[in-house]
Design a protein around this nucleic acid. Structure first.
Lengths: 170, 170
DNA sequence: CTACTTGCAAACCATTTGCATAATC
DNA sequence: GATTATGCAAATGGTTTGCAAGTAG
């Protein structure tokens, strides 16, 4: 994972290489999305970025998301009756989605690529992208019982709350 | 797979058992959704059902979809920038989604359940539902090159076009 | 300097909802 | 006959777009 300064210059390079201008808004938006593990919604990105760029608009959030997507830097996860969430992890991985606290955790499994390769082969289907979600109840919610839906609540940065259950086995 | 009459009476029972009335509209909508393999959109269901029930409204399509979902008879698949598509297959399976012709095919794999059980165990996550999509190019589009996007075009029933590439290895 | 971006507000569009009428049980 | 469902039309809400003013290269 890149250090703060590295991330920023890599973001700038990425935009310029793709013919986009590296504006302060784009940099701030990208920096936030690419470094969080919480799979934020566009609204969450908006409220986070507003802290440093009070005049940023939701439209800019959305166009930047589209640019990042075009450049292959993130993917979007949609689920019925809930807002689209963003995922900057472009490696094959699966999502553990807790129905109680609505956290989405990444899970990397060493056998996944082989499994996909085999299906691709058997089905004669050229795979260009994938999406693997498991829905259920996470350990934390099962233990504590007190699942909270704090995702909606703005004003908190990428905290330990996410970090300690995310990106296991990377 | 149930024969036509069986399907209808099973639909009626299912609704009544769950406290819903078995109206002609609901029966027609359910019958179509539950017996097609094409993973239709709500609009597609609307145009199909209108053939026999010219006065049916989109609102009824949507409320019936919700009822079927509540009863565990179908799931919804959403993807960025495209309409929600319906899937009456509630067994663990994966989707082969062709980016060219937009067909969605089901693929059952014998190892899938074991794989999920292992992840569930390792991640300490109680799985209640899943969603596994592979995006890419299907054999037909690769061979013929003439991928068509006929899904949007109404007025055609569940044809061989879908049937011969759907639900392989059931 | 020029073209691309931003921020605002209006437009979009799939889906949901309110309500009077109609149909189920 | 009481209650639930339908169909219409209006509302919703996340996302997109048009445009004048601002900014990157």
């Amino acid at each position: 994972m890149a250090e703060s300064g590295d991330l920023e210059s890599s973001i700038i390079k990425t935009f310029r290489n793709s013919g986009y201008r590296a504006t302060p808004q784009r940099i701030a938006i990208s920096r936030y999305i690419l470094s969080t593990h919480e799979h934020p919604t566009a609204q969450k990105v908006f409220s986070e970025v507003k802290k440093d760029h009070p005049t940023v608009s939701l439209a800019t959030i959305y166009t930047t998301i589209k640019a990042l997507k075009d450049m292959g830097m993130l993917q979007e996860l949609n689920h019925p009756q809930s807002e689209t969430r963003l995922d900057p992890n472009m490696e094959p991985h699966l999502h553990l989605i807790c129905s109680r606290c609505e956290r989405i955790s990444d899970w990397m499994d060493p056998e996944m690529e082989d499994f996909i390769a085999r299906v691709s082969d058997e089905a004669d289907f050229v795979v260009t992208g994938l999406r693997f979600d498991l829905k259920g109840i996470c350990k934390r919610c099962r233990d504590g019982g007190k699942g909270d839906r704090s995702l909606a609540a703005a004003g908190e940065s990428s905290s330990a709350k996410d970090a300690d259950y995310t990106a296991v086995k990377v």
